[in-house]
Design a protein around this nucleic acid. Structure first.
Lengths: 294, 294
DNA sequence: AGAGGTTACGGGCAGCGTAAGGATC
DNA sequence: GATCCTTACGCTGCCCGTAACCTCT
């Protein structure tokens, strides 16, 4: 009796094909190279045929390998459906490594996590707040499962769910007159360096105000608001985050004649391997943000 | 991370459902009851839900179990397709336990085994020759994989492939005159007791010749022909088997006005679990017999 | 008591990681 | 030598079988 194939072997096989090598697959699966070699060899043994031609630089699928590939995809798709329809998400403990931009952390992240915990009560959510470019790298390195950032990420491997835009507006301390503020002559607080809003703001200020404009980039948006409140800076920041400060009466909105374009966020995740949890989380992010932003 | 499901668990699950109990499934899979219990419990653990309600007499599927059942069937169907399209049958060693009636053993069995070995070079064929009723029991007890017998077997679990009929004819020693033979007054050699041809012959002789007819049932058809050759008996036997004896000139055909109806053989096998090998073997039996019987 | 399933526990083996070994550029 | 993959080998943990146990009729 020939030993039967199993899902782990097929999953491994798919990883090797998609990663284009055993070493890469081992990395992706958090295993060693020999472990992957063994799995593939066992799979080949159990079908009594080779799946790869071992060339000098890496592997190449055989015809049989191509055929098995299509079946392996069907198997894992089916496994994903079982995950969706049969597994009890109320009971199973899992982990979601979530990366979010500061803006999100300051607005609808709590509502998102609450909804997530409602749908997956045993889910552990690990949150990392960072600038979009770092989140992007973390996602591609598989250090996080889902990134909510200034997107989309235009890699073929990434799926992006568009989220509602954040409109920006100019804010200044109420100690300034509107006319004073409009000059944009005091320092401008802004998003951190290496972020899209920062670069766009810097370019626009250079063009519309002049090269001598001073920008204070900050990795913390609440710090920006504090700087504005204190009358040290003015800033173009998301309207959605200004509510508390308005209520305190410490800042006001003003219009110097232009504002940076709205912030387009996406919930982005790797398409392979397909995960119902991550996909659902991205959709929940969409639903929650839509509800919160109206 | 919840441990993943695997194909073995799903296969076991299917067996339990189809056998209607853990004990029966254990028997079918040649394992012990606790092993099956463990597999099912692990499967339940990995989906974090129960699949069966444990009642006093046996198990009953839960709603989740019903859903998983349909997926499990899809999984194993897919596995069967892989078996068909990916596994190298030229290389894999397998075993086919074949049960055949004497008539088949004497006619196209060699051609069948040759063709089988041509298509599956590494296949071990175990041959058991017995009367149809015993082959039927062996098949249902899973002691053989494929039975070629007087069919069909009308159990819901059995698939039957119809094979060409064996026409019967009356034979007598050339030492008898045709007129002598037609009386059917000497003993009649026939198939073994408990076979369909025996019962039919006995009933027909009772009606057409009388209750005093003597029948010599034999489990060996070649023994029947020898008895006929020796002038001790006449017999209604398959035309297809008479060729050698004709050529020797030791027997002749005669027609007492009626002959038993032709022998209808089938290649029969259990539908569960689906097996490409067995299914293909049955079809090869069909092809070979069609070719040989023309 | 017997027919069903479950729990307890020891042993064998599959499969992992570490480390060393090719092969090819 | 660098980059891949494979081989060798010890070890851990999974899963099976034996045996005892439970629970209903």
């Amino acid at each position: 009796m020939s030993s039967k194939i199993n899902l782990q072997q097929l999953d491994t096989f798919l990883s090797v094909v998609r990663c284009g090598g055993i070493g890469k697959a081992a990395e992706q699966l958090n295993l060693t190279q020999p472990a992957i070699t063994t799995r593939i060899r066992n799979l080949e043994y159990s079908i009594s045929a080779t799946l790869f031609e071992r060339t000098s630089r890496g592997l190449k699928l055989t015809k049989r390998g191509e055929v098995l590939l299509s079946y392996a995809e069907k198997f894992l798709h089916l496994a994903e459906l079982v995950e969706r329809d049969v597994v009890d998400h109320q009971a199973v403990e899992r982990r979601l490594r979530l990366g979010v931009s500061e803006t999100i952390a300051q607005s609808w992240l709590p509502a998102f996590v609450e909804k997530l915990n409602q749908k997956f009560p045993k889910l552990t959510v690990e949150i990392k707040v960072d600038i979009s470019v770092e989140l992007r790298n973390s996602l591609l390195d598989r250090e996080i499962d889902l990134a909510i950032l200034l997107g989309p990420i235009s890699e073929y491997s990434v799926d992006n769910v568009a989220l509602p835009e954040f409109e920006l507006a100019w804010f200044a301390s109420t100690s300034f007159s509107v006319e004073e503020a409009k000059q944009l002559k005091c320092p401008i607080a802004s998003y951190a360096r290496n972020t899209r809003p920062y670069r766009e703001l810097k370019a626009a200020l250079f063009e519309k105000v002049g090269p001598e404009t001073v920008i204070f980039p900050s990795s913390s948006l609440s710090a920006c608001f504090r700087l504005v409140e204190a009358g040290l800076c003015v800033a173009a920041l998301p309207k959605a985050l200004a509510k508390d400060y308005f209520e305190r009466g410490s800042i006001r909105e003003f219009d110097p004649g232009w504002t940076p374009s709205p912030l387009q966020f996406t919930a982005s995740y790797l398409g392979d391997p397909k995960s119902y949890l991550i996909e659902t989380a991205a959709n929940i992010a969409h639903d929650v943000s839509m509800a919160q932003m109206t």
